[in-house]
Design a protein around this nucleic acid. Structure first.
Lengths: 94, 94
DNA sequence: TGACTATGTGATCATATGCGCATACAGTTC
DNA sequence: GAACTGTATGCGCATATGATCACATAGTCA
C-alpha cells in the first residue's frame, strides 16, 4: 500500500458520524461494546462493525476480559485529528 | 448542523485518494484546474467535481483570473490533518 | 450440559460515491 | 459576432457504504 492509500484509510476510518461518536465516547478511555452501543444509540451489530472497521484500520485497540471486549483509541493522534477537524469547521463558521 | 456533522464533512472531504493527491499538489500554493488535472492524471471533469466538493466543504479557496480559476488550500490545518494521518499510518507500520 | 450474556457475521436493502463521456457555460481574443 | 480556451454539469454506470434483521459464535456460570 502506498502512503497515499494508508492516509486515506486512516482518514476515512475516522470521518463517519457513527464512528466519530464512538471515538468521542472512547476519549476518556477504553470501553466495552455493551457500554458503547447504548451510549451512542445505535444497534449493537452496527457498532460492532464500526469497531472492527476501525480496528482493522489500526486506530483502535482491543482487549478481552471475560465475556466483554474493551476497545480503546490506540493513538492520541486520532483524537488530535478529530480536534483539528473541529478547528477547521470553526474557521468555516461551523 | 451539529459540530459532529461539521467535522465529518471536513474529514470526509479530505479522506479520498484523488482529493489527497490534489491537496498534496496544492501544498506549495494555489494552482489552476488546467495545471491540477494533468499533474494528478485524472479527467478534467472529475477533478473539477472534487475541487468543488472541497470548496463546498470550505477547505479550498477559489480565485478567478481571466479564463483560469485558481484553487488553493484555505487553512494550514488541512495539510496538518493530512500529516497527522501520515503519522498514524506510520505508527501502524504503514 | 444447558441457560445466559456479550459480541460478531451473513444476507439484504437503500443510498452515496467516484468515474467517464458528452455537452453546456463562461471568459477571452480576433 | 465567431472561434477558442478553461471550467462546470447532466447522465448513466459500477461499486462502496451504512443500516437492519436474524442468527451464529464464544465465554461464563449454575
Amino acid at each position: 500500500m502506498n502512503p497515499l492509500d494508508a492516509r486515506r484509510d486512516i482518514i476515512s476510518a475516522i470521518g463517519q458520524e457513527t464512528r466519530i461518536a464512538i471515538l468521542e465516547f472512547l476519549r476518556d478511555g477504553e470501553r466495552c461494546v455493551c457500554e458503547i452501543f447504548p451510549a451512542i444509540g445505535h444497534e449493537q451489530s452496527n457498532v460492532s462493525r464500526h469497531l472492527n472497521l476501525m480496528l482493522a484500520a489500526g486506530i483502535l485497540s482491543r482487549r478481552k476480559e471475560g465475556l466483554k471486549i474493551y476497545y480503546g483509541v490506540r493513538y492520541p493522534e486520532v483524537l488530535e485529528l478529530l480536534d483539528l477537524a473541529g478547528v477547521i469547521a470553526r474557521n468555516n463558521g461551523r
